[in-house]
Design a protein around this nucleic acid. Structure first.
Length: 572
RNA sequence: GCCCCCGUAGCUCAGAGGAUAGAGCGAUGGCUUCCGAAGCCAUGCGUCGUAGGUUCGAUUCCUAUCGGGGGUACCA
């Protein structure tokens, strides 16, 4: 596929003097209104260099590049050179490329040989998976897919919250009030119940806290009984998480969580000390970052135990040694901004030149209409309930609309869960939002079901077109372009063309919503095209040309959804 | 107090120096003898929080200010 921005820049450079292609390319823009052109080149910046009024420069350039066969029309409007691309060659180029590549359309080898670690989801063992957790899980999954698509060697890490004094509390509570059967039946709810009960009882009897701390110390020392209980809690919890991950279609390469790094902490503390970064304050060991306006970072508590940041430092060092990453990405809530700033600064001060290859990808807070989510106060919405409800509603719609599907359960799951994931990936990740049932269960407009529906509709056209026509359209050889020269076909093609660059933008910004928004645009453009043009006409050449564009559009939507971790149903 | 993020249509949000600021939801009205109406089209909706500044040009960058959220040493 030609890089048209590049071609335009080259044409402008050839028509002028003393300009660099890269500089010109950066200035080439896409007008807000396509009536003004497909591309535009503003000449304001050239005024100083050329010592000429911008409109005159624009006029000069417009005249000189007008006869380029790539362009259909070149106009000067004030300081702008507005360029209209010759549609036929452009569209044929795009369609042949997309149909030829199929599932590979959008892929590149940009990241070949570079390893990107993505840490996401990272739930706490024995705590329920609520809608607050969906963000890291779904955003991280999409970021992994985006980097994977660009050819990076990716590693998906679930940094489980599987260690700390809380486990001392849980073991303590289990021994006093727990039962094996209860835990096995509903691990997370039960363990959470023990944990809550512990806190209630500890208020009456402060000795419990000490008992819990002692148990945790035993666990750290690897005492058999404590270790067995901990392992069991961890496994049971993980089983329950796995059912949610299966529903979402999400997998991991590593479950190395907090416990995995527990024995790597003393070395980090020693290293910080040797590098002269550690100082004692109020009985604790800290790294003073006041010089960088980052406060102080607590490395060990006054009782000698380590903290979150110590583990993250250990994890970063281990990951660099073990994986030799190009980027080490953490998809973690924005509440931890300061923590990650301190962490990167400390790695820098330790002399690690890769410190800035560590990236915190923050996202905003989810709250409920009744206020901030709080498991303890019962203000919580469980992710599994949301997914189940969405699937149930989808099933009702399928029945109500009398939709013929290949498998109603499968389709309802694809669409219902897709709807929840899609919504999560629609807005800029940094935005806070308030969870609302009405919103997640709305399937009209800019939603996952809308995009999936558009795909199913396109596939329906292809089924009706017949194998022979589809085969010719797929090959896209010698298409008669006059039949798809209309505006809606052209607008659709332009959006398909932009897809690969959209993926790169999403990767640069660590922002899946860039992809989400774009495929909504593609779906809208397809629906307009579908409405404006009758595709399956009698004229064979016309039918093939139009079908070829349908294939391109369906393909782009499917690949786009895949980057979000969402499947595209053939029928819905 | 200090630090970070957000403030754009009734609501939810795009746009991150450029030409008249865009979608969806909600509202109103239309479109199916024809490829899937979870669709398409039309209409209405704006001091881009406020005030300065930089620039040929600012919703976008800078400063201040107001409003909302988060963080701010022994939780993660």
């Amino acid at each position: 596929m030609n890089d048209y921005r590049d071609l335009i820049a080259t044409a402008i450079v050839n028509a002028t003097e003393g300009l660099e292609t890269e500089d010109v390319k950066a200035l080439v823009e896409i007008p807000a209104d396509s009536k003004m052109g497909d591309y535009a080149f503003p000449c304001f910046k050239l005024a100083k260099v050329m010592r000429k009024a911008p409109p005159l420069i624009a006029k000069d350039i417009a005249e000189k590049i007008a006869d380029n066969p790539l362009f259909d029309k070149v106009e000067q409007v004030n300081a702008y050179v507005n360029i209209f691309i010759s549609r036929s060659a452009y569209m044929e180029d795009v369609i042949r490329e997309v149909n030829g590549k199929g599932a590979d359309f959008g892929k590149s080898d940009l990241g070949a040989g570079k390893k990107v670690l993505v840490e996401y989801s990272s739930p706490n063992i024995a705590k329920p998976f609520h809608i607050g957790h969906i963000r890291s899980t779904v955003i991280g999954n999409s970021i992994y897919k985006i980097f994977d698509c660009l050819g990076y060697d990716t590693v998906r890490i679930n940094h489980l919250g599987d260690y700390g004094t809380q486990f001392g509390k849980m073991i303590c509570a289990y021994r006093r009030w727990g039962s094996k059967e209860e835990v096995e039946k509903e691990p997370i709810k039960t363990l959470l119940k023990y944990y809550t009960k512990f806190h209630e009882e500890a208020e009456k009897d402060p000795d419990l806290d000490q008992e819990a701390r002692d148990i945790f110390t035993k666990l750290e020392n690897g005492e058999k009984e404590e270790l067995e209980l901990w392992t069991w809690f961890r496994e049971e919890s993980l089983k329950e998480f796995t059912t949610v991950y299966k529903m979402l279609g999400i997998e991991f390469d590593s479950y190395a969580g907090e416990s995995f790094y527990s024995d790597k902490m003393p070395a980090v503390v020693r290293e910080l000390d040797e590098k002269g970064l550690l100082e004692e304050s109020e009985g604790a060991m800290i790294v003073d970052l006041e010089d960088y306006d980052l406060g102080v970072a607590l490395i060990t508590k006054s009782d000698g135990s380590t903290l979150y940041i110590t583990r993250d430092i250990a994890a970063a060092i281990y990951r660099k040694q073990h994986y030799d990453f190009y980027k080490n990405v953490y998809v973690v809530a924005s509440q931890q901004n300061l923590h990650f700033q301190q962490w990167i600064k400390i790695l820098e001060l330790m002399g690690y030149d890769w410190a800035n290859d560590c990236v915190h990808v923050p996202f905003g807070l989810v709250s409920l209409e009744e206020g901030t989510m709080s498991t303890r106060h019962g203000r919580v919405v469980f992710l599994e309930d949301v997914l189940n409800k969405a699937v149930e509603k989808t099933r009702e719609i399928i029945v109500e609309k009398n939709v013929v599907t290949d498998n109603i359960d499968e389709t309802a799951a694809m669409v219902g869960i897709g709807a929840v994931m899609f919504q999560e990936l629609s807005n800029n990740r940094i935005k806070d939002y308030t969870f609302s049932w009405d919103k997640v269960l709305n399937f009209d407009g800019e939603t996952g079901p809308y995009v999936q529906y558009t795909y199913a509709r396109a596939k329906s056209v292809l089924r009706n077109a017949g194998e022979e026509v589809v085969a010719k359209a797929q090959a896209a050889e010698g298409l008669d372009m006059q039949y798809i020269s209309g505006d809606s076909a052209y607008e659709l093609t332009k959006l398909i063309y932009a897809f690969p660059s959209v993926i790169e933008e999403a990767a640069n910004k660590y922002e899946p919503s860039v992809v989400t928004r774009h495929i909504v645009d593609v779906a809208q453009a397809f629906n307009r095209f579908y409405h404006d043009e009758h595709i399956l006409v009698d004229n064979e050449d016309e039918k093939i040309a139009k079908t070829a564009l349908v294939i391109s559009a369906a393909n782009t939507i499917k690949n786009g959804l895949a980057l979000l971790g969402i499947s595209a149903p053939e029928k819905m």
